[in-house]
Design a protein around this nucleic acid. Structure first.
Lengths: 149, 149
DNA sequence: CTTATACCCGACCAAAATACTAGGGTTTAT
DNA sequence: ATAAACCCTAGTATTTTGGTCGGGTATAAG
């Protein structure tokens, strides 16, 4: 039940954009270096984030990436779901699956469990925004002046 | 973030034991057939459940497996955790890991998110027992006499 | 006391998913 | 022009998953 690197790197990259980004685009290279992610790999991930409308890109020299919305409007859930798909513990409770894979019946005893797990994960990750992370970061930094990431 | 077959089969097998088991041991073969799990594979899973103290085994002819405790004392969480390990979304918030893998600092902004996810999953799965599943099953069966599993 | 049943155990293996790398575009500021 | 930087597809090594296989050992029944 671990998240893959896609989701983890995605969160790191988006947080980096929220922290270091502004009006001018942030080149992929800078994000990749700060977050210690391979540039070519991060490029694939950020392409998904762009297609999902979470970041905007500026092509050409001096180009790069920008958050598509203010940090307070981007949830951790939208980032993770974009890069990992539904966070359902089993196929049959993922979005748009509609009992897929339950060939023997259209309902089962265990399905209720998986639904509860999925709902609780969703409610946690949809309630956290990049702004919340920035606030946490500020608080941590204030305590002892160390650079946390 | 999907559960592997280990956790799913484990839940199925334990539910089968709760539903069809009694004072006499249930042979592995019977469970495997009802739940459509390969006998050899289920044997590996149930060995883990036995070592974790969730089932008892009786060797020899007419042997088999029994729940080690009443269904009301066995949680879905204990079963899944036995077969899948900690349900932490990332390594560093798994039990007994203590910040493992965070070489750059002893805390990070994202760690808080992973902890919240883990805690919410744990609280859901630890609150459901095999007895709850039996009750759900009874309710489903009462409605329309179909055999649900 | 033999035999069949059924648990016990470790090694091995194929398929799928993951985590990348490689390389060739295209766009655009300078 | 040219170099910076995004864009896209294909391939590939490693790891994880989901098993199989084959040989034990314990014991109830006849």
């Amino acid at each position: 039940m671990r998240l893959s690197t896609r989701g983890r790197y995605g969160i790191k990259a988006m947080f980096d954009l929220a922290l270091h980004g502004g009006d001018t685009p942030l080149p992929l290279k800078a994000i990749a270096e700060r977050q210690e992610i391979s540039e070519a790999y991060l490029e694939q991930l950020i392409a998904s984030l762009r297609k999902a409308g979470l970041v905007k890109s500026v092509r050409g020299a001096q180009g790069g990436y920008l958050l598509a919305c203010p940090p307070s409007e981007i949830t951790v859930g939208s980032i993770i779901r974009t890069l990992e798909g539904s966070l359902a513990p089993v196929e049959c409770v993922a979005e748009g699956e509609e009992f897929a894979g339950c060939e023997k019946s259209n309902f089962c005893v265990t399905r209720g469990i998986w639904e509860k797990i999925k709902d609780s994960i969703d409610s946690v990750i949809d309630s956290i925004t990049l702004q919340d992370m920035l606030d946490d970061y500020e608080k941590l930094n204030m305590q002892d002046n160390m650079y946390y990431i």
